[in-house]
């Protein structure tokens, strides 16, 4: 790298072509005061090319805008200085702790609300759990009635009202309910229902045990109170009665059988 080489680089650099510099040129510049001076001179000349443009006064309002803008930023500098003062820090610290207190209060309030919501949820879950436990107990009872080791099954045959119908009575001595499943009973209308009757030993008066409706072809399940394991029941029968049931049978029996 010679002085002439560097003069060429300095000329291009002055025009904004700084990418022409190499490591060797930079090293030469660090070592050569004459070339550093030349570079500064070239940069000065490069800038002065702008003086060949014709000078023109800018609009007067532009000066006003520029000075106002500078004045505004000067105010910002002053605000920054004040912002850094000890009083500002004290105020800032107070503001910070006030904000922290407010934030904590808000968080506490939110936590209380969340706790209340969780408590409500807990109650709902507990109620649901109780309901499901009752359902499970009921299902377990039915399972015991149907498949218990001491369970008894009684077939119920269709009578003159519904010769194709049938039923199956499940009795478990340890349970307080008996279950009856009916098949093939004609569907009810909105004006009538089926009524299940029990005729106890030594009695000729049928005792209403339940009413139910058949609304599809599917089997119907009916639970019958059986506090004594139906030990006292001699006959079980089903008649078709007006909606809501009757105090005594008013129509022919659809199903009947002796237990």
């Amino acid at each position: 790298m010679t002085h002439d080489d560097l003069a060429g680089l300095a000329a291009l650099d002055a025009l904004g072509f700084a990418e022409t510099w190499t490591d060797g040129a930079r090293q030469h510049l660090r070592d050569c005061a004459e070339c550093r001076s030349l570079l500064r001179e070239m940069q000065e000349i490069g800038a002065m090319i702008g003086l060949t443009a014709t000078a023109v006064d800018p609009p007067a309002d532009l000066k006003k805008r520029i000075l106002e803008s500078a004045s505004g930023s000067s105010d910002s500098v002053e605000e920054e200085r004040v912002r850094r003062s000890p009083i500002w820090w004290l105020a800032s610290a107070a503001s910070f702790f006030l904000a922290l207190w407010g934030w904590t209060e808000l968080r506490l309030h939110a936590a209380n609300e969340q706790l209340s919501t969780l408590e409500t949820d807990r109650r709902v879950v507990a109620e649901e759990k109780q309901r499901l436990e009752g359902k499970r107990g009921e299902l377990e009872s039915r399972l015991r009635i149907i498949s218990g080791v001491d369970s008894r099954i009684v077939q119920i045959a269709g009578a003159s009202g519904a010769p194709g119908a049938s039923g199956r009575l499940f009795i478990a001595p340890s349970e307080k309910l008996a279950l009856v499943f009916f098949h093939g009973l004609p569907q009810n209308s909105s004006n009538d229902c089926y009524q299940l009757w029990l005729i106890r030993r030594g009695s000729s008066t049928p005792e209403s045990a339940a009413t139910f409706q058949v609304l599809s072809d599917k089997p119907v399940e009916v639970a019958v109170p059986a506090a004594d394991g139906m030990q006292s029941v001699e006959t079980i029968a089903v008649s078709r009665e007006p909606a809501g049931g009757s105090t005594t049978p008013t129509a022919p029996m659809y199903l009947a059988t002796k237990i």
Partner: peptide, 10 residues
């Protein structure tokens, strides 16, 4: 400002 404005116009 005058010379700079002239330069920018150019």
């Amino acid at each position: 400002s005058s010379i700079l404005y002239g330069l920018l116009l150019r």
